[in-house]
């Protein structure tokens, strides 16, 4: 089976300055791969590069078995949907307006939705339980609801690969769990490959099929299943926590994660 996303020795960064080098990723449909690492390690840079926002500084990105740069600009969005940390400023947007934009790669010159498109929009909203928000202003709903609306927009694109940059960061613990639960079931139902970054190690441990660790210097220090990654003592070195000074709280947390 072709990988939803595969990279070969990918170097990522801005303006020729490499942030994370030699990234090797291989994600099949139905899998969740999570990037973890301290702030500033370059998780977002990697995600932006595989999302086509930044040009690779070296190496190659393959989407669905084909080199990403060889796709016509609009075509690749039928395979790849992104959910990056970008604030939307436009006023007077209902949630269904936002979700409808997910049909962008499929609509005609003026972007008018067909009946089929409308059906898919509705179905996507049902799937993430935001149908009752359809006519609400996107700016007037809660953060948790907003993330779900954005997820519906991504689902609408009928992608095989989804890229999410810290989708849970502004949510409280209940909504974090709710969101990831939803994501997990979508990935299984729709057979979508996911790459995302998460801050919360315990959540990464719960949801991921594989975890990629990037350290503060932008090196990929470990890739493996959550059990492999979290059982190793390298988690504290990843976050440069001096083991001698770990507080009781943190060590019990680490234990809970690695068991």
């Amino acid at each position: 089976m072709t990988s939803a996303l595969r990279t070969e020795n990918l170097d990522t960064g801005y303006d020729r300055r490499i942030v994370v080098a030699g990234v090797v990723i291989d994600i099949h449909r139905g899998e969740i791969v999570t990037l973890i690492g301290p702030n500033g390690a370059g998780k977002s840079t990697v995600l932006k590069t595989v999302a086509g926002q930044l040009a690779p500084l070296g190496g190659t990105v393959y989407i669905n078995g084909q080199e990403a740069s060889s796709y016509p600009a609009a075509e690749v969005s039928k395979f790849r949907a992104v959910m990056l940390t970008e604030r939307m400023t436009s006023e007077q947007m209902t949630c269904s307006d936002v979700v409808s934009l997910g049909r962008y790669p499929y609509t005609g010159k003026l972007g008018i939705l067909s009946d089929e498109d409308k059906r898919i929009v509705k179905e996507s909203m049902d799937l993430v339980h935001v149908s009752e928000l359809a006519d609400r202003d996107y700016h007037a709903i809660s953060d948790g609801q907003r993330q779900r609306v954005l997820l519906a927009r991504a689902i609408c694109q009928e992608p095989q690969l989804m890229i999410l940059d810290e989708p849970t960061s502004y949510l409280d613990i209940r909504h974090k769990l709710e969101f990831l639960d939803l994501l997990k079931s979508l990935v299984t139902d729709r057979n979508i490959g996911v790459i995302m970054s998460l801050h919360e190690l315990e959540l990464a441990h719960m949801i991921s099929d594989r975890v990629i660790c990037i350290d503060a210097e932008g090196r990929v220090v470990m890739t493996g299943t959550p059990d492999e990654v979290f059982s190793d003592a390298s988690i504290s070195s990843l976050y440069e926590i001096d083991t001698g000074r770990i507080t009781g709280l943190y060590s019990s947390f680490l234990k809970s994660v690695s068991k």
């Binding site: 939307m88 436009s90 962008y104 609509t107």
Partner: peptide
């Protein structure tokens, strides 16, 4: 059409081509 994508943010607009 591209304007409606751009209203969602520059990165989103780029992501849909």
């Amino acid at each position: 059409k591209p304007m409606s994508a751009f209203q969602m943010g520059e990165q989103y607009a780029r992501s849909v081509g």
